[in-house]
């Protein structure tokens, strides 16, 4: 059996339509629904709900919906999703780079820092014969 205060509190939560009340509460409330105060309360809430529906925003027009769909597709194209395949490719590229760096480090560790190749100064000498002009001898 439900008391007047519990009925009132439940009505303020679930509204005028007892069909929308949870079944257990509805069963407890049924004996009170014919009480004048309950009838008045439910009628008042029914008015409120009717006004709530009347004050509702309009359904969007097909044009508006179409623009929203086009706008969404633009956003999707502009911000490509990180798909599992794309993520895998990124991870593979990162791992490849890491492996190459590690290999390079191992080479350095094994063979020491790479020095510039020792240049034979002789190779930089221009042999006189290279500059010899034909017919001038030398």
């Amino acid at each position: 059996m439900m008391g007047k205060e519990e009925f009132r509190a439940t009505a303020m939560i679930y509204g005028a339509d007892l069909a929308r009340w949870p079944a257990g509460l509805r069963a407890k409330a049924m004996s009170l629904t014919a009480e004048p105060w309950a009838v008045a309360l439910l009628a008042d809430l029914a008015d409120l709900e009717a006004d709530l529906a009347a004050a509702d925003v309009d359904a969007p027009t097909p044009d508006r919906v179409g623009r929203a769909i086009a706008g969404t597709l633009d956003r999707v194209t502009a911000r490509p999703r990180l798909s599992p395949g794309r993520l895998l490719a990124w991870v593979a590229a990162g791992a490849g780079g890491l492996a190459a760096s590690a290999a390079f480090g191992m080479v350095l560790a094994l063979y020491g820092p790479l020095a510039p190749p020792t240049l034979d100064p002789i190779s930089f000498l221009i042999e006189a014969g290279d500059l010899a002009l034909p017919g001038l001898g030398g």
């Binding site: 925003v57 969007p60 508006r64 919906v65 769909i69 969404t72 999707v76 798909s83």
Partner: peptide
């Protein structure tokens, strides 16, 4: 799986509801 046509179809069904 990356099917934009499926997204389009889903939006055709539910975009109006989402906007409202």
């Amino acid at each position: 799986a990356g099917d934009q046509r499926a997204l389009r179809l889903l939006m055709d069904r539910h975009m109006a509801r989402a906007i409202r």
